[in-house]
Design a protein around this nucleic acid. Structure first.
Lengths: 253, 253
DNA sequence: GCAAAAGTGTTGCAGATACACCCATGG
DNA sequence: CCATGGGTGTATCTGCAACACTTTTGC
């Protein structure tokens, strides 16, 4: 990612790309029992930004978001959800950006004014990403949502709103499994809920609630390696989930 | 609203207006116990469209939506909520639109390709609108959501998604009062819920649920005029609502 | 006075919570 | 063998749906 590249992009690809609209992706993961988001830099040494990009005229915004995430993570099956549009007239001004970065030599006549951005949040398991980690740039990091560094533009607001949306969603839909490996245990799932909703829960009640929804398949395996009794492994079952939705099951916490 | 006006707009106002992005407003109201949406026409005799408009470079998308609704209804205090972005590459093509309408004489070189639209749904009390109804054009109507006429572009999809969002919201937030006059009765509120959620409810339970939330103020007045026992009048109380949110009250149906 | 609508009280059931108890594992 | 974590059963509590009963109004 390189700002000058972006700017030459703007000048040379007006036919293919809409430079008034972008997507910004808040990619969440959980590592060391902490909720984190992926950040990157436009210029080395500068402030952090969310991974994002402009939209090709031949694609819709979801496709653009998938493209951006694929480019960052190597994955193209990431859980993704649009949550808001950011359109403050002063949120992203090419002209002031270039001035701030001391790139005044660039001819800015053809650059658009305000850029409107569609915010997406995405969920991914940390281990899946590190598997394809080879392509990461140095100017990329996982930042704890409680300890965000200084961010450019309105990206802090975008992250905060993404978290609110994630919480609201998790409160009513069982989307947390997207943050876990394919096979996971109930204690792991509970830990996730506790981290995201920032609320301790009772072990037995939690488990019963999850099982009652009947959307997780219990495998004939148990998690080995840890000390103490080995917990069962579960897997999210898409078919069961569809059946549960048909039955109008409520997934509220 | 006039298509040729729009097109001359595009040509003459590129400085002020972003013609790649628009807002479309699904304005709901309830009349005769039916849920209806406001529709309009681009050209007399042509198909229906949702009220919408482009976005000034000096405003955000919410302001644009408020502007569009104010222009249609005379009201600027309408409950409004963004619900999705519509960006299919073929959803709105100026070029094919002009061709379809037989306006091929128009020079289309400067028109944008695909227009991305931000969808809003809005709620308004029917009586409030008719008060300022003088400025309505002939080519404007309230269409029942169950009997939609043929619509241009992807506007039918937008309405359907708006309804789903409205239902989902109403299921978890007490927004229905926006469709009622300031003072309303519990039976009226219940009727609304039944229309929107398309589900009959038990009178006594409904009333208790509403009162338990403690967000409606019971007035020392009763609704007169109808036959039978006069029901109490209530008013949505913003302060009480804030308190209830603080208390983490669940407004689920 | 009666029918219909609205307010209020009562009861029973289902779901959730809290707790208890047991089991398994590694150190 | 014991501390800890995990599975499962059970008692209790709560909320709410369903129903009953009462009150009020217009005709």
């Amino acid at each position: 990612m390189d700002l000058e590249k972006i700017i030459s992009n703007v000048k040379n690809n007006r036919e293919q790309i809409d430079f008034n609209i972008s997507v910004d992706c808040v990619l969440f993961t959980v590592q060391d029992n902490k909720l984190k988001v992926l950040l990157t830099k436009l210029l080395p040494g500068n402030e952090w930004v969310l991974p994002g990009g402009f939209i090709f005229r031949s694609e819709n915004v979801e496709t653009a978001a998938i493209r951006v995430l694929k480019q960052r993570t190597g994955l193209d099956q990431i859980f993704l959800q649009q949550f808001n549009t950011f359109s403050d007239p002063n949120r992203f001004l090419f002209r002031s950006l270039i001035k701030d970065l001391g790139l005044e030599t660039i001819d800015i006549v053809q650059l658009p004014e305000r850029v409107i951005s569609i915010g997406f949040f995405a969920l991914v398991n940390y281990e899946l990403i590190t598997l394809t980690g080879g392509e990461f740039e140095e100017d990329t990091c996982w930042a704890e949502v409680t300890k965000l560094p200084k961010l450019m533009f309105d990206h802090q607001i975008i992250i905060i709103e993404a978290m609110e949306s994630l919480r609201k969603e998790l409160y009513f839909k069982p989307i947390a499994y997207n943050l876990l490996p394919e096979k996971f245990t109930m204690p792991e799932l509970q830990k996730l809920y506790e981290i995201i909703l920032d609320k301790k829960m009772e072990r037995s009640s939690f488990q019963k609630k999850m099982l009652k929804w009947d959307i997780y398949e219990r495998l004939n395996e148990r998690k080995t390696g840890g000390a103490h009794k080995q917990p069962f492994l579960y897997r999210f079952d898409t078919m069961k989930y569809k059946v549960a939705i048909e039955k109008d099951i409520k997934f509220g916490m």
